[in-house]
Design a protein around this nucleic acid. Structure first.
Ligand SMILES: [Mn+2]
Ligand SMILES: [Mn+2]
Ligand SMILES: [Zn+2]
Ligand SMILES: [Zn+2]
Lengths: 144, 144
DNA sequence: AACGGGATTAGAACTATTCTAAACTGTGAG
DNA sequence: CTCACAGTTTAGAATAGTTCTAATCCCGTT
């Protein structure tokens, strides 16, 4: 009962469609294709440009503007989260759970650190009138 | 023996000149003016644009390109450090010591947290071939 | 005072991202 | 099944922050 390539592509598309409906997003061709790539396998960290390259290399045609729109809509819908580690590029993360990152700047690579393994202690109370929205830890690493 | 305004401006300029010489940077008019603003009082977090506005509002004339050049040269020389909290703007910090930040995104405001007060525990060893360069903690805060 | 190399500058260029407004398409009503 | 329409996509223009270029300037030395 091996599934053919076309079968598993259809499965991914069906799963993506469900996920989109669930998030209240109309499952258009472009959104289904992008969601299939993003959520098919393991957790991923993408850039608008990198995802656009990937979808293009897969022989699919989605405009860069749509990739940007989609990444933001997915983020808004809680399907992605944005990771800020570079003042010139935006990264999006398919892992929306509690976790932190290693960042290898020279290659623009992010590596997950499970949220349970890391702990930030001694955070002072924020100044009056402000409340903590979230705590980000970025461990910048270098080669060798 | 109160000093006049002109006197203290001269003092600041003299101090800035010394600091620049010490860092191996030629004390030009522009660098002295920018260093005077940056290091006169308490610790500060600036943007190229905000510093340019400030120096302009003080009636001095420094091009935006020079502000960018100077911020990078100062950073290179260890007089400033860069803080990455926004994927669209670069912040520079006059506090080069060990510390972390609250970030109020809606106003682009950074607030220091002393390094001693905060502790990050449970950081896993970086993947083989990589070594930790530095650990950044950003506590994103919201109004109310 | 003159020189030489670093520094400054205006403006062009560049890059990531967002905007615009026209064409397209998923969906639900009929 | 078809139609209509709101939501979506798109190419290309626009924007914003930053960097680059190459001509001019000026600090420090002689
Ligand atoms: Mn102003
Ligand atoms: Mn930018
Ligand atoms: Zn992640
Ligand atoms: Zn600081």
């Amino acid at each position: 009962m091996g599934k053919t390539l076309r079968d598993s592509s259809k499965d991914a598309a069906a799963a993506a469609t469900l996920r989109l409906r669930h998030a209240g997003l109309r499952p258009t061709r472009q959104r289904v294709e992008l969601a299939s790539l993003l959520f098919k396998n393991c957790d991923r960290h993408v850039t608008a440009e990198s995802l656009h390259d990937e979808v293009t290399d897969a022989g699919l045609k989605v405009s860069l503007a749509t990739v940007y729109n989609t990444l933001h809509q997915f983020t808004e819908a809680g399907l992605l989260r944005q990771v800020i580690v570079d003042s010139a590029r935006s990264y999006f993360d398919t892992n929306t759970g509690d976790h932190q990152h290693f960042f290898l700047e020279s290659e623009g690579m992010l590596i997950d650190i499970p949220g349970e393994s890391i702990a930030v202690a001694g955070v002072p109370a924020p100044p009056p009138g402000l409340s903590v929205d979230r705590v980000d830890v970025v461990i910048r690493v270098k080669r060798a």
